[in-house]
Write a protein that binds this DNA or RNA. Structure first.
Lengths: 220, 220
DNA sequence: CTCACATTCAAGAACTGTCTTGAATGAACG
DNA sequence: CGTTCATTCAAGACAGTTCTTGAATGTGAG
């Protein structure tokens, strides 16, 4: 009868690996593309040793894999079903968790951007040439894959980009995922400058997971 | 920039609620039907106070809801998407977690029953009258809903049932879910008595979640 | 072979989760 | 109105998690 609890303990280990904000952050980073420990530490604002420990917790649970490439150890998400699990966690959190609702209400709702554009909608508009698509992630993440036809304008360079030439057409922005702050910020700033701007409903990992084409200029 | 971590912390709370074997057990029980605290404590072999605490962790996360009914407080799973989340956790665990693979290999694989019958397959066979379907869960769970046409033969009464009349046709057994021990045990015992027996791929919660008809004799 | 570098390990401090025990709450019923 | 019963709360012991610091490992370059 203890087989049941042994099995549940193993499933619980997987759940516990997701049960920490920093590890969810690292997982979101890894969903953009594989990365070495030091790069992840910088993105997550953690020390290298601490990042290493979190990555090992994720690896023990089976959520990520690490492989040595030269001097570095490069981590990646095990498989697409891990992204499905995180997506299921997001769905439940959005619908039933008070903490999630509070943050979404306070922060994300406040800066509008709620009318997200669906993938299908974007594809139709792009086919008609009616839209400028911005990838507002840092260049290294853009380099690991992006939506074909997207312009890489990191948030830090958005004001510069606007000065040079405000777009004539509607702007759609995307970043790392459905609740990544970058696209929300970008849309807020674009609107304050008078642009017609909206947010894509999902980031690159979701686009990739949906089986849609991804442009990957730099191949190893 | 802390909005991101606040949001991830909220999602992490949901994940942590799933990060304990007893809470996963309670959640499986609740997936069979709503239950009061004392009944859950008995099923999970926990003290009432401890069960109450676990239920509150699940409720804080938003995974279950509690409502007073008379003298008791009856808990239930918030919504079907919670079952989807647990299913996603199961998928990832089965595919990528070494602990899960070890228990499945040692215990479940050992007692065979791996060739699970799909829902569609069962429905075809039942339409042709080729199969005896056994619900090997305790009667209270059977009473909260079961597959139409199923016979309630709890594991404790299986030997008695076999003595009276071993079935002429093939037997399919199901219980609480894909990794519930009851159906595995039942299939093992049936086979040892010479029956052609197999396990249904999924328990009642999965059947219900698939939108298939459920018989519920006792209505409140 | 040695050096430099990326990562991991080890130990410790602070915090969080779990389970036990016994008391407190609060609705139902006489 | 007080008793009964199901549940929750509170406090304490113990185990597990997280982060920091500095040392250890192991790979590649010179």
């Amino acid at each position: 009868m203890s087989a049941k609890l042994d099995l549940f303990s193993a499933f619980a280990e997987v759940a516990r690996a997701l049960g920490n904000a920093h590890r969810l952050d690292l997982l979101e980073q890894l969903a953009q593309g594989e990365r070495a420990v030091e790069a992840l530490a910088a993105k997550a604002s953690l020390t290298v040793a601490n990042t290493s420990q979190h990555l090992q917790a994720l690896r023990r649970a089976g959520l990520v894999l690490g492989a040595r490439r030269g001097k570095q150890i490069v981590y990646r998400v095990s498989d697409g079903d891990v992204l499905d699990l995180v997506a299921a966690l997001r769905t439940v959190g959005e619908r039933h968790n008070d903490g999630v609702k509070a943050v979404v209400g306070d922060y994300f709702h406040a800066r509008d951007g709620l009318e997200a554009v669906s993938f299908d909608e974007l594809r139709r508009k792009m086919a008609d040439g009616l839209v400028t698509l911005l990838d507002v992630r840092p260049p290294d993440e853009f380099a690991d894959g992006h939506v074909p036809g997207a312009l890489n304008v990191p948030l830090t360079e958005l004001d510069l980009w606007l000065r040079d030439g405000p777009p004539g057409s509607e702007v759609v922005a995307y970043c790392r995922g459905p609740w990544c702050v970058l696209a929300f910020e970008a849309v807020a700033r674009l609107r304050s400058k008078g642009c017609t701007a909206s947010r894509l409903d999902g980031g690159l990992p979701e686009w990739r997971r949906a089986g849609l084409p991804v442009e990957q200029p730099v191949q190893w």
